[in-house]
């Protein structure tokens, strides 16, 4: 019984796709291992909702820009490749920005300039330059997807802790019981402010590094 369940899993484990995703999510996470794209990672993590939307927008942009650059890779001249890549990324970011404005206006107001700043997010240019330029479209798309999700996972993790400890809510719903406040519990206001983001992500990475070293 167990063997039958384990076998398909083992096959999945050997595929390129599985290895790529695992690498991007855990072993070489773009934020905590490669230190890419932290700019926006910190700014949108006051609430979980903005963090999730931002993570999804970035995943979409990385995956699609990887796909497009990979399709074009044979016809992009070596010398002007950066400009071509930035143009592709900027176009996708404009699409994402307009979509957010159309369907999620409130969230797009909260994210303000940070959606636009996906253009200069090092993860996107890093993946197109390092991976999509040398790999076939399907693999590049997958790589973009995995890296975007790796980014989103850290974002949501940090946002969860900041929202929970900073304002006592999860996804906007209060979760700390009223009795606790009456017993003298106070939300940590520092975590909502900018320095809280730095310190929280520092501690988050510390935890992750320690867990990874133990294995």
């Amino acid at each position: 019984m167990n063997g039958a369940v384990a076998k398909p899993w083992a096959v999945v484990k050997r595929t390129v796709a599985y290895k790529e995703i695992l690498k991007a999510l855990w072993k070489a996470n773009p934020i905590s291992k490669q230190i890419l794209g932290i700019c926006s990672a910190l700014a949108v993590t006051v609430q979980m909702q903005t963090a999730i939307v931002m993570g999804l927008a970035l995943t979409l942009v990385v995956a699609c820009s990887n796909l497009i650059v990979s399709l074009l890779r044979a016809s992009i001249p070596r010398n002007i490749r950066i400009i071509v890549q930035v143009a592709v990324i900027a176009t996708l970011v404009i699409i994402a920005d307009e979509l957010l404005k159309a369907f999620m206006y409130d969230v797009s107001k909260q994210l303000s300039v940070f959606v636009g700043l996906i253009i200069t997010n090092c993860i996107v240019l890093g993946r197109t330059e390092a991976y999509a330029m040398n790999n076939p479209p399907a693999r590049a798309f997958l790589d973009g997807l995995a890296n975007g999700l790796g980014y989103a996972s850290v974002l949501v993790g940090v946002a969860f802790l900041r929202e929970l400890l900073g304002s006592g809510r999860v996804l906007g719903y209060p979760v700390i019981p009223e009795a606790l406040y009456q017993a003298g519990y106070v939300n940590n206001g520092l975590l909502v402010l900018a320095p809280g983001a730095f310190i929280m992500i520092g501690l988050f990475v510390w935890l992750e590094h320690t867990l990874l070293e133990r294995k």
Partner: peptide, 11 residues
């Protein structure tokens, strides 16, 4: 050890 590098810079 785990805090060296990135984590320390952030804090």
């Amino acid at each position: 050890a785990g805090l060296q590098g990135f984590g320390q810079s952030m804090i």
